[in-house]
Amino acid sequence: MAKLHVSTTINGEPVEFLCSPQQSMLEVLRNTLGLTGTKEGCGTGDCGACSITLDGRLVCSCLMLAAEAEGREIGTIEGMAQGDRLHPLQRKFLELAALQCGICTPGVLVAAKALLDRNPDPTETEVRYWLAGNLCRCTGYDKIVRAVLETAAEMREEAAR
């Protein structure tokens, strides 16, 4: 079958690629575009390791067809830091040891940022339910939840200044 030509925006930059109609966004990100920061843990939308944003909305890239990216804006972990300046969530995850093996970390960070973009002052329960789609097998989530809550508090303070 002929490949489709897709024009899209990834992390603010224009990107074009060819894909077959059945290819997932995850497959194209990783295998065609070399953006391997987005991880595959299950391929069925159950683990959240492949979390990206599509026009600001959190999605599992394994459940999205690559062709759907046409004309849309995609955000991945590679776009989270600004140059050599880490996003406050990235910094806080390092400070609080909120990662161990790190395979879920890109997805968790993308999801957490999507939360804070919507809700700058989430409760612990809101953080826990928002991140319920991101499996982590190493940390027991404790330090992840603390890192998101502390980052939110710091970002609010920063914004108030």
Partner: peptide, 19 residues
């Protein structure tokens, strides 16, 4: 509680896993 040597790679998607 120092910052882990492999930390920046892991929070930016640089860290290279098997796949």
């Amino acid at each position: 509680r120092t910052i882990r040597p492999d930390g920046a790679d892991k929070v930016t998607g640089r860290a290279a896993y098997a796949a």
